[in-house]
């Protein structure tokens, strides 16, 4: 299976792969997608965590206030 699949993907390969500009282009596209995905997720996480924590503060304060009025 090693041989045949290896042979097959080499046979299918186009001159594209040997062209350094095309090669770099695909590498940059993949790298950019990864960075955008990971950094975007981090930003989203931090934002959501901040808003969830703010909400917790809010609820805690409200709880304390209602206890004081009692």
């Amino acid at each position: 299976m090693n041989e045949s699949s290896a042979a097959r993907w080499r046979r299918q390969a186009t001159p594209d792969a040997s062209d350094p500009f095309v090669s770099v282009g695909f590498l940059i596209a993949a790298g950019a997608t990864t960075v955008i995905g990971l950094v975007g997720y981090t930003v989203m996480l931090v934002e959501r965590l901040a808003s969830a924590r703010a909400r917790r503060e809010e609820l805690q304060t409200a709880d304390r206030d209602s206890q004081r009025t009692e």
């Binding site: 993907w9 299918q12 390969a13 186009t14 594209d16 792969a17 095309v22 090669s23 695909f26 596209a29 993949a30 997608t33 990864t34 995905g37 990971l38 997720y41």
Partner: peptide
């Protein structure tokens, strides 16, 4: 997180396969 990484794996794999496997 697993779905996020699998998505990125599929996309980057595609971007590698295009020039190499055509």
């Amino acid at each position: 997180i697993g779905v996020l990484f699998t998505t990125l794996v599929l996309i980057t794999g595609s971007l590698w396969a295009k020039p190499i496997w055509n």
